[in-house]
């Protein structure tokens, strides 16, 4: 039977791609962030996930305001990382897992969710960055991808509870999948940051610590705020924590925090990386 073996939760700041391209991992500005990935790199080497299910938000690459889904699930044979407007170096194309994608889609729709389904889908830094940090420098990704996009762009956004419940439904889909894959979930974005408005540069370490500390032991504590509460607390892009909440929802059993790293500043962002392992895996 397939198993959710762990979860990676990480910021996805585009400037990280620049730092990777320029080899700045040991630079004093960047080192405290990149070092947070050391335990993650070790863990994925040992745990060898075959599939990664990523909850992320598109940044105006695959989706525009002409058609803006609240939830969208990829069911494509492959997902190319394409130019988002800055001409940055691109990451390798991801191979899809169409059978698993359709199983997830069928299962969450049976659970009364209504996602958009995408047989053609490009992916941006918001999806690729944490994976590029966990598997640095690979020419081919050693796993298949299922991308799940959450709208964090155009309000009203889905509520934290709705994102968590979607994650729960995805978790049930993964538990009922007949394959024998080792599945990692991933939630990207955040933590507190705001790029726009007179409050640009807003950070909130207190709220971020609340999120990091509760992610493993009491994720439902994160559901007490509305999405607009989170915008106020964490900044207008800090609300990308919705992706973390969705991914955490997909981890049905108890989990153990293996590592967490919180660093200010990376670009305009309070950057965080958290690795959780499913407990049944730890005991196996």
């Amino acid at each position: 039977m397939s198993k959710v073996i762990g979860g990676l939760f990480s910021s996805h700041v585009p400037a990280i791609g620049n730092a990777i391209a320029k080899g700045l991992q040991q630079d004093p500005y960047w080192k405290p962030f990149f070092d947070g990935f050391d335990p993650v790199k070790e863990w994925v080497k040992q745990a060898k996930p075959d599939v990664v299910v990523v909850f992320y938000n598109d940044h105006g690459l695959n989706f525009f305001l002409d058609k803006m889904p609240t939830f969208a699930i990829g069911a494509a044979p492959e997902y190319a990382n394409e130019d988002e407007g800055w001409g940055l170096p691109l990451f390798p194309t991801f191979q899809g897992h169409q059978d698993l994608s359709w199983h997830i889609i069928e299962s969450v729709i049976a659970d009364e969710f209504d996602p958009v389904t995408c047989q053609k889908m490009t992916v941006d830094h918001g999806l690729a960055m944490p994976l590029a940090l966990a598997w640095p420098g690979v020419s081919e990704w050693p796993f298949k991808l299922v991308p799940i996009n959450i709208n964090t762009v155009q309000h009203p956004l889905p509520s934290p509870k709705r994102c968590f419940d979607l994650g729960r439904a995805v978790g049930r889909a993964l538990a009922s999948w007949g394959g024998d894959e080792r599945i990692m979930v991933c939630g990207t974005g955040g933590l507190s940051h705001q790029l726009d408005g007179e409050r640009a540069g807003h950070l909130n370490p207190e709220y971020d610590r609340f999120c990091i500390d509760n992610l493993s032991r009491d994720p439902e504590a994160l559901l007490n705020h509305s999405s607009l509460d989170i915008v106020e607390l964490a900044g207008s892009q800090g609300v990308e924590i919705l992706n973390w909440i969705g991914a955490r929802g997909a981890m049905l059993g108890s989990v153990k925090e293996l590592s967490s790293n919180y660093h200010i500043p990376i670009s305009n962002t309070a950057a965080a990386t958290v690795l959780l392992e499913s407990c049944e895996m730890a005991e196996a």
Binding site: L258, S259, S260, Y262, P265
Partner: peptide, 17 residues
């Protein structure tokens, strides 16, 4: 000045099990 304001809030908190 904007960068300095961000750096002034600088911190790193790490846990490894």
């Amino acid at each position: 000045d904007f960068k300095a304001k961000l750096l002034a809030q600088g911190l790193t908190e790490r846990r490894v099990a």
